[in-house]
Simulated scan of single mutants.
Amino acid sequence: MDPLIRLKEAHLKGLIPDKVYDLVVKRFPIVVEGINRIEKASGIRFPIAYVEPSIVVSAPSSNPYAFGILFARTIPVTFDEKFQVVIQISAPLIAYGLKGTIHAILAHEFLHFLDLIRKISKMELLSDEITGNLFESVYADETRLFEPRAVFDDRTLLHHITKRFPAGFRDYKLEDKAMKFWIEKELPRTNISLDSNTVKLSAESISKIKIDPMFLKKLDELEAKSSKIRKKKLY
């Protein structure tokens, strides 16, 4: 799979201007570097990733906490009856994000990937909780993921994650640039509801998923390390 295929198609259709397209393509090696870095720091292969040629925004509502930009998402898909996890990386993140920010977001989505596989292996994904606002989603996000220090053996990468995700992701400069150079220019935009940004798989589909036993063993080790780190934080 060409990770830039959807971006190229949007460019050919005239949805993405030449200047923006060239900028994303020029800066894409930062993503590749980040993926290689995460694989080296964790000892685990990064899932399939692709560039989404639109900005993903949580659908506006009367609730002020319900609006936000999702610069990347971890999405479970089935293809030819085979289960796959895909990391969706938005073009605005690549175009306007700092290197540290891009790597931190990739690492954060990688933690989502690990948590998703852990839940599937333990059959805990039948009714993933649904939250109606961004604050609740951030809280749920932070309490269910693996501890970064248990997964990554890279001090600089850990610093980027801690800096960008103290309590949910915030990067005001990146958000401002995304608003000014993407949303206000009326470039492609995808609206979603936070309630729909959840994983729903049937028990039958989960039972058909085959996961490498060595990978499951690695996840058990990471879960144990995460538990120890959280206990130290509490006490």
Rank of each mutant, 00 (worst) to 15 (best):
P17I: 10
I48D: 12
P148I: 04
P64Y: 03
K99E: 14
K218E: 07
Y65M: 13
P166E: 02
I229D: 06
T74C: 11
L12M: 15
F83Y: 00
F71S: 04
T143Y: 01
P60F: 02
R118F: 12
K208Y: 00
K173V: 14
A104L: 06
I209D: 10
G68V: 05
Y139Q: 12
I105Q: 03
E142R: 13
G14L: 00
I5F: 12
P17V: 11
I183L: 09
V32I: 03
G97S: 10
P3Q: 01
T156Y: 04
D212H: 04
H159E: 08
E186G: 01
T198L: 00
I30N: 03
E33I: 02
I69C: 09
I94W: 05
Y139A: 12
L7V: 03
I55N: 07
L126Y: 13
E9P: 01
L106R: 12
K208M: 09
G34P: 03
S205Y: 06
K122M: 06
L194T: 04
F79D: 14
S196N: 08
E109R: 06
I192N: 02
R6Q: 13
L174A: 00
K180S: 10
L15Q: 08
L70V: 15
N197M: 13
P60H: 04
A178Q: 02
A167S: 14
L201G: 11
A91Y: 07
H108R: 07
I94D: 09
T101R: 00
K185T: 02
K173E: 15
S202D: 01
E186H: 09
D195Y: 12
E9G: 03
S90C: 09
A140H: 11
H108L: 08
S227N: 12
I38E: 05
I130Q: 12
P92M: 04
R164P: 01
F113V: 03
A91V: 07
I16D: 02
S90Y: 00
I120W: 04
G97M: 10
T101K: 00
A140W: 11
K119S: 13
A59Q: 15
D154I: 01
S62W: 14
K231C: 02
I130P: 01
P76C: 11
F169V: 02
L194S: 08
T78F: 12
I229T: 07
D18C: 05
R144P: 02
S226D: 00
H108N: 12
D171Q: 05
K122Y: 08
N191F: 15
K26F: 12
N197D: 15
G97A: 11
V77I: 13
V85S: 07
D195N: 14
K99P: 01
R144M: 07
F28T: 05
I105R: 05
I192V: 10
A178L: 07
R144Y: 00
A49I: 09
N63I: 03
E33M: 05
T190S: 06
I117L: 14
Y65S: 12
K185R: 09
A167L: 14
L219Q: 09
H103Y: 04
L234H: 07
Q84Y: 15
A72E: 00
G14K: 01
R155M: 10
